[in-house]
Amino acid sequence: MNTLLRALLPIGLLALTTLAWAHSPIMGIGGVFGGMLHALLIPEHGLSLLGIALGLERPAASRSGMLIFVAALVAGLAVTAFIAEPALAADILLAATGILGLLIAAAWVPPVVAWPLAAIAGVAFALDSRPEVTATDEIIRMLIGTGIGAAIALAIVAVGSTFLRGNAARIVLRVLGSWVAAIAILDLSLRIATRLATGS
């Protein structure tokens, strides 16, 4: 029962989350802490971290997959410090998350698919994390915070997902995967439709 409760927690937490500001989670908080909050409070980013951690939960894909994601994230953050935020970064992140969700729902996450997705998600996560501040020092501090926050959040969900053992927990994992995929697909389509409607 405790295992089931632990498995249901992500659902509860997902339901409790509310929207966050895209590029300034809490006014007045900048620097490393602001960057950490940025990584943790952007719903798209939270969804992708959940999908990645659950998708890389299986031993065959986990350690290398996590390392690939973090390496891609660090590389992406380094690039983000010096370029403007690409328009499609969030869309790519959602697409990777959606595919991972589908794979989780199908209980088929081969490393050959999961690892490239982890790399794509890591880079897209970083590129979508550029803070809306102008000072280069502040940008760098916030991006460092974003990297730390994302790594911590990923580790927490990954450790939590190791409790998902047994049939009931495996089922919860697949249901969660289907929900992650469904949310990512709907979100992505709404973004595209909004972009088409507004011509932006």
């Binding site: 969804l47 709404l190 909004t194």
Partner: peptide, 23 residues
Amino acid sequence: HGTELPVGADAIAYSMGFVIATG
């Protein structure tokens, strides 16, 4: 549902609510 969804909705929150309610 898709045709009824408002373009310009806060996509991620709306989608989360929608999928969780369905579940």
